[in-house]
Design a binder for these strands. Structure first.
Length: 479
RNA sequence: UCCCUAGUAGCUCAGUUGGUUAGAGCGGCGGACUGUUAAUCCGUAGGUCGUAGGUUCAAGUCCUACCUGGGGAGCCA
């Protein structure tokens, strides 16, 4: 008999229908004559209640239907006598596909801490919280492609192994097949990479942007959506060593076009989650509300759904770095000496506390900061007419900080080359990149969106390691 | 990497100014119960107190180092 998804049964199952379901036991309750088995198959948050009359089954079968066991159940849908559900499955046949030793199975029918579940990441998707998170994650992946495809952007797969070490976005993981002991050396004693697999030094990519620019200068509008690797020793709830990044790149677009695109994109994604993941978002909102009760009042966050609507329904605030510095300089916490890093004026990089003040206190919605000082930003960002700022933009979100970083790219060959010299970036190794400026160069812009940071925001999860199935971080590479 | 903080049963925690045999709830197991909703009730088994040193007559408790988790910072997406 063909398997029916529990999602479909809960949505439109009719009493009297004969069905087969396959899934995992969440809990089992029972008395002498009847057992109630809550079954979940991952297709939705809800469980289907299976009713098993004790007399009609082998003792062993019911003994083995413990929390976590995989079952195939055939029977008839009936109107439920209980109040928790409208239909339930009156079991006629139960097959235990896979047992789960109750003394060893770690996921108990009770509340677990996220830390404990993180250590059991291979099983945590069997909980309501994580199944909801990963269903939302899927929906967001789909929405990313839908948004860009409808706007005539092409998805480009940029390389994961790269020989470019000038992406300038942080420490890289080396890729090599050379032996660790007895490493081939040059006469000068350096590692001889000409004997390595690619005949040169290679790493895992930290960004697909530079290759994305090449594609944009041919296909016009492109986006990448791929894995990215940073070997930074970052131990925070906002960083991963392996994460997924979306990087659109648009020819003939300036910084304003870039901001418009980024804002429309983010609001689209959040609205998509509200429209298409209602049940899961509502569950996570309720869950978060429970957590907030344990916090002191001043640290409590806004309700998840209200927060998402706020972002989806309102324009982002846009202001320049210079304006932001002025606001911060005149802010109460600065005057009262509450900032750990006092605002000294133009040229200082903004710290988390400053970003939080702007987003969470001053404006209470997302903020786009533009036109940063050139010396604190990357070489490829376009120099403004003032000569000291660049056409960069960062989008700051409440609670998670920087979610998007982007810029108009420097398309003027001479300016770009001078900048690379200044920042000691090897031009000869980057001639493929400079070719886009040599041959048919044009103004263009793009940005990077950290996918997991978006998911953190949409799900309300506090730790980025809880929105990627198998997190990689310093000292953490399980499974 | 830096600062703060925690580590006691499978899980979540309590354990007083250092003092006899380390406790609870949940989960597990056994039993009771004609329909439960993380069922309820009765009973029961689980511990090298993160690791290694040290102080002391005596350490779960105090000190040092290390390991691991959490919060914050830096770096960034």
């Amino acid at each position: 008999m063909k398997r029916t998804l529990i999602k479909e049964i809960l949505l439109s199952g009719q009493p009297g229908t004969e069905v087969n379901i396959k899934g995992w036991v969440r809990t089992k309750r029972g008395s002498k004559s009847v057992n109630f088995i809550a079954m979940n198959d991952g297709t939705c948050l809800g469980n289907l209640q299976v009713v098993a009359d004790v007399a009609s089954f082998e003792e062993e079968t019911l003994r083995d239907t413990t929390t976590g066991a995989a079952l195939s159940v055939t029977g008839k849908l009936v109107a439920s006598q209980g109040s928790g559900q409208s239909v339930e499955l009156q079991a006629e046949n139960i097959e235990v596909l896979g047992k789960a030793d109750p003394e060893k199975y770690p996921i108990q029918p009770k509340k677990h801490t996220l830390e404990f579940l993180r250590e059991n990441a291979h099983l945590r998707m069997r909980t309501n919280t994580f199944s909801a998170v990963f269903r939302i994650r899927h929906a967001m992946i789909f929405a990313v492609h839908k948004f860009f495809s409808e706007k005539n952007f092409y998805n480009i797969h940029t390389p994961i192994i790269t020989s470019s070490d000038a992406e300038g976005a942080g420490e890289m993981f080396r890729v090599t097949t050379l032996p660790f002991n007895d490493t081939p050396r040059t006469e000068e004693g350096d590692v001889d990479f000409t004997q390595d697999f690619f005949c040169k030094s290679t790493n895992l990519t930290v960004s697909g942007q530079l290759e994305g620019e090449l594609a944009a200068m041919a296909l016009g509008q492109i986006y990448t959506f791929g894995p990215t690797f940073r070997a930074e020793n970052s131990n925070t709830s906002r960083h991963l060593a392996e994460f997924w990044m979306i990087e659109p790149e648009v020819a003939f677009a300036d910084l304003n076009d870039n901001m418009d695109l980024a804002e429309e994109f983010l609001r689209y994604l959040i609205q998509y989650a509200l429209d298409n993941c209602k049940e899961d978002v509502e569950f996570l909102a309720k869950r978060q509300e429970e957590e907030e009760k344990n916090k002191p009042k001043e640290e409590r966050n806004m309700n998840l759904i209200e927060k998402l609507k706020l972002v989806a329904d309102n324009d982002f605030v846009r202001l320049t770095y210079t304006e932001a510095i002025e606001i911060l300089r005149n802010s109460k916490p600065n005057k009262k000496g509450k900032f750990k890093y006092p605002i000294e004026g133009f040229g200082t990089d903004l710290q988390s506390e400053h970003e939080r003040y702007l987003v969470e206190k001053k404006f209470q919605k997302p903020v786009i900061l533009t036109d940063y000082p050139a010396n604190i930003k990357a070489f490829y960002m376009r120099v403004n007419e003032d000569g000291k700022t660049v056409a960069a933009m960062d989008i700051l979100f409440p609670q998670i900080g920087e979610i998007v970083g982007g810029s108009q790219r420097e398309e003027r060959l001479d300016v770009l080359e001078a900048k690379m010299d200044e920042m000691k970036i090897p031009k000869d190794e980057m001639s493929w990149y400079l070719d886009t400026r040599r041959f048919g160069g044009a103004p263009h812009s793009g940005f990077g969106l950290g996918f997991e940071r978006l998911i953190t925001f949409v799900t309300g999860m506090g730790n980025i390691r809880d929105v990627i199935p198998f997190p990689r971080a310093p000292k953490t590479c399980e499974f």
